[in-house]
């Protein structure tokens, strides 16, 4: 059932600094941006948060730029902006591919990369790309800025190293060498949630990440090691099975997720040969 709106609190900062001050002095506040998941939680009565910090208006957090070898996306960059960006298409085509498969146009116009990270769903479609690309998440507090490797960002199911007084302000991608690959296996062709999602880079040492097969998005480093060491795909698939822990839910089954993850690995390996 829908949550009543009147008891909810929304703070609207005028700047990032203002936002960080509110987080520190007036917390706890849940940052909100494109709201593509927030109202779903409110409408299903599954979101417990009652106090929100609306950062949608903070234009400082928008924009895509290339700084030397680094591709930097402001946290409020929408999927639509990612899809349109020539820089992203050139340097990180797997992120453009992932963004095209998120929701549909209406969601792509509102959903943000920062929101995808903050929301922390194990099925977040862009997240395996961040993991495979060795992205850094920029976190700002009132008096500090720190960069956390994306692969160290989550500490458990929807739990992360972000402190309550920090904002995700950007995500940065170092130059990715090697052939990029992305595939989402969803419940249908559009507007779908992934059953298994994979992003990978074929380089001397391959980098491989999966979503929807564990409590968080996962980099499967032992599988990468096996492939880097020249193991056969079949051997790598066996290692992969030890690294993932999918569940049965209303969207799919353990057996399906395991088998498809293995097949995706094989497909990646043969397509990028």
């Amino acid at each position: 059932m829908r949550t009543a709106i009147s008891p909810l609190v929304m703070r609207q900062p005028r700047s990032v600094r203002d936002a960080l001050r509110m987080l520190r002095d007036d917390g706890p506040l849940t940052p909100m941006a494109g709201c593509t998941d927030l109202y779903v939680g409110l409408n299903f009565g599954t979101l417990g948060d009652r106090r929100f910090l609306d950062i949608w208006g903070l234009d400082e957090l928008r924009g895509i730029e290339v700084r030397g070898d680094v591709l930097r996306l402001g946290a409020l960059t929408t999927y639509a902006e990612i899809i349109r960006s020539a820089d992203v298409r050139r340097r990180l085509p797997m992120l453009a591919a992932a963004s095209r498969e998120i929701g549909a146009v209406q969601i792509q116009n509102r959903g943000t990369i920062g929101g995808n990270i903050a929301n922390g769903s194990p099925a977040g479609d862009a997240l395996p790309v961040l993991a495979a690309a060795d992205a850094l998440v920029e976190l700002r507090g009132i008096e500090w800025t720190r960069r956390v490797p994306f692969t160290d960002f989550y500490t458990g199911y929807r739990a992360s190293v972000r402190r309550p007084d920090e904002l995700i302000t950007a995500v940065e991608f170092p130059r990715v060498a090697g052939r990029q690959w992305f595939r989402k296996v969803g419940t249908r062709a559009a507007q779908s949630i992934s059953k298994v999602v994979m992003a990978a880079v074929r380089a001397d040492r391959p980098r491989i990440a999966f979503g929807s097969v564990a409590p968080t998005v996962v980099r499967v480093r032992r599988t990468e090691d096996a492939l880097a060491a020249g193991a056969s795909v079949e051997e790598a698939q066996r290692v992969l099975q030890e690294e993932i822990s999918p569940i049965d839910d209303i969207r799919s089954t353990v057996a399906y997720r395991r088998e498809v993850a293995a097949r995706l690995l094989a497909q990646f390996w043969s397509v990028t040969r």
Binding site: P93, M94, A96, A97, R100, Q180, W181, F182, R183, A266, Q267, S270, V271, T272
Partner: peptide, 8 residues
């Protein structure tokens, strides 16, 4: 089999 269904 390896279907040519790369990203993008």
């Amino acid at each position: 089999s390896a279907r040519q269904a790369g990203f993008g």
